[in-house]
């Protein structure tokens, strides 16, 4: 069943200057949908529009059939729509523990400690660094904390903007492995990536965004061999 439905969404930063120009797709529970595309295609803008950070000028985003129109970002997370932005995705001046405490603060009091414990169990590296300031973590730990922060509230939709950026190939593999586990627990994942090879390896489905529109759709790893796709964009970093 589709959890997230995006219908002909148009979004941008200034009136009359749409960046995302009529995008539609659906996302189901336990599925990874990868969003690829050249720089400036509007991938991050689309992800932010889903999260509520960018205003949608037309079209709708629905969560289990219910429109999220007019819902602020801080309410969307309460409804289970989580987002890990590409940069500035942890509170660098706060400790790892405080980052997680802020995340679970929207949950009922009784559930908070349990969710933090679950996150520390899922990301053992973080457990060791609980008292460290997030700004002092390594790139990989930081990315894990960013994911843990978003996942701590047990969202039904998790959007990630280039979680592999700046990580070594080994760490990219580790992040993708985590995303697989998260998917298998039933979360619907929208994964924005530049690293097509790594992303498509875990993708159930994939789309390519070009100039704000979906230019191609396909099924995961098979897209790597599709010459049409390579022509569209994949030249880089495949």
């Amino acid at each position: 069943m589709s959890v997230l439905t995006v219908e002909t969404v148009v979004a941008g930063y200034e009136p009359g200057l749409p960046i995302v120009r009529g995008v539609s797709f659906t996302l189901s529970a336990g599925e990874i949908l990868v969003l690829l595309g050249p720089n400036g295609a509007g991938k991050s803008t689309l992800a932010k529009a889903v999260a509520g950070l960018v205003t949608i000028s037309s079209g709708t985003v629905r969560l289990r059939g219910v429109s999220l129109a007019g819902m602020a970002a801080h309410d969307r997370i309460r409804h289970g729509v989580a987002f890990v932005p590409q940069t500035g995705n942890v509170f660098a001046g706060l400790t790892v523990a405080d980052n997680l405490a802020i995340a679970v603060n929207i949950l009922p009091r009784a559930e908070r400690a349990g969710r933090i414990a679950a996150m520390l169990a899922l990301f053992p590296d973080l457990a060791a660094a609980r008292r460290a300031r997030a700004g002092l973590l390594s790139g990989g730990q930081r990315q894990m904390l960013a994911i843990a922060r978003a996942l701590a509230v047990a969202p039904s939709v998790l959007t990630l903007d280039e979680p592999s950026a700046g990580l070594s190939p080994k760490l990219v593999g580790a992040v993708m492995q985590k995303l697989r586990e998260i998917r298998d627990s039933g979360v619907a994942i929208l994964l924005v990536e530049q690293n097509a090879r790594a992303a498509l390896a875990v993708a159930d489905r994939a789309m390519i965004l070009a100039e704000g529109r979906i230019a191609h759709e396909g099924h995961g790893a098979s897209m790597l061999d599709d010459p049409a796709v390579a022509g569209l964009y994949l030249g880089r970093r495949v």
Partner: peptide, 8 residues
């Protein structure tokens, strides 16, 4: 922005 995303 991140604060908003965290539900604040």
């Amino acid at each position: 922005d991140l604060a908003r995303l965290a539900g604040i």
